[in-house]
Simulated scan of single mutants.
Amino acid sequence: MTTPLIELRDVTRRYDAGPPALLDVTLTVAPGEAVAVLGPSGSGKSTLLNLIAGLDRPDEGTVTVDGVRVDGLGESGAARYRRAGVGMVFQFFNLLDDLTVADNVALPAQLAGTGRREAARRAAELLDSLGIAAQASAYPGRLSGGERQRVAVARALMNRPALLLADEPTGALDSASGADVARLLQELNADGQTLVLVTHDHDLARACTRRTVHLADGRITADVTTEAVR
């Protein structure tokens, strides 16, 4: 039996006196799997992502990712865990406008202690593989939304993370750019990248994953796997 890459056990997270953001959630994700987390606003999707990323801690239960007890990490340990093991892609790109595309992509490696030359080599390799090598010396403000999201994906992959987390990655894109990013996520998963995708978009979930986890009021209400299309 394959050891899960992600394992949440009996996780509850409360923020105030109201209903919990997550309640008694148990979830496993296998290495190489692509999972979409669906649900309305306030269902707990972002809380789930933040717990997996080590940006938040549960009040109860455990969060383990790639053998690391994420819920037990301190602030500096959580930062190291994210640099080494998790790539994150956001709706609004979060690129640094005063750095070139190549420097944006190389930045996580440099923060992790990789030398400038090796970081630049890896950045160039990623930009080429994602089809945006021609934009390496451009600044993010000169790019289309789809191009900026490709840069964000390249940056997320810079340190070869075991896990890629994508939070509404097509939410700020037009339909053509969104379809382009969806194909990119499909290709990455086909190459073995583990993916957890948080989205409101059922079409994006169907395009990128075969498994959907539905959240409502902090609970998992459905966990559905469909057969691969042959």
Rank of each mutant, 00 (worst) to 15 (best):
T3P: 00
P4Y: 15
L5T: 01
R9V: 11
R9E: 14
V11N: 07
V11F: 10
T12G: 09
R13T: 01
R13S: 10
P19E: 10
L22N: 05
D24R: 12
D24M: 03
V29A: 05
A30T: 12
P31C: 13
P31F: 11
A34K: 02
A34V: 06
P40K: 14
S41Y: 12
S41F: 09
G42L: 08
G42W: 04
G42N: 09
K45L: 09
T47K: 01
N50C: 12
I52T: 00
L55W: 02
P58T: 13
E60I: 03
T62C: 07
R69F: 09
D71S: 12
G72P: 00
G72Y: 08
G72H: 10
G72S: 11
L73T: 05
L73M: 11
L73P: 08
G74E: 00
G74F: 03
S76T: 14
R80S: 11
Y81P: 12
V86M: 01
V89N: 02
Q91K: 12
Q91T: 01
F92N: 15
V101C: 08
D103N: 12
V105T: 01
L107E: 15
L111T: 03
G115F: 07
R116M: 09
R116A: 15
E118P: 04
R121K: 14
R122T: 15
R122W: 03
R122I: 02
R122S: 08
A123G: 11
E125L: 12
E125D: 15
L127A: 06
L127N: 02
S129R: 15
S129L: 04
L130E: 02
G131C: 11
A134W: 12
Q135E: 14
Q135L: 15
A136E: 06
A136V: 04
S137G: 15
Y139M: 06
P140N: 06
L143W: 07
L143V: 02
L143Q: 06
L143P: 05
S144A: 08
G145Y: 10
G145F: 07
E147Y: 12
Q149K: 11
R150F: 04
V151H: 08
V153M: 07
R160W: 04
L164F: 04
L165F: 11
E168R: 14
T170L: 08
T170W: 11
A172K: 13
D174P: 08
D174V: 09
D174E: 02
D180F: 13
V181T: 01
V181K: 04
E187N: 10
E187W: 03
N189G: 14
N189W: 09
A190I: 10
G192W: 07
L195M: 04
L197D: 01
L197R: 01
L197Y: 06
H200Q: 13
D201H: 13
D203G: 14
L204K: 05
A207R: 15
C208D: 02
R211H: 11
R211P: 00
R211I: 13
R211G: 07
T212D: 10
V213A: 07
D217K: 13
R219H: 14
T225D: 03
T225Q: 15
E227D: 15
E227M: 10
E227K: 15
R230K: 07
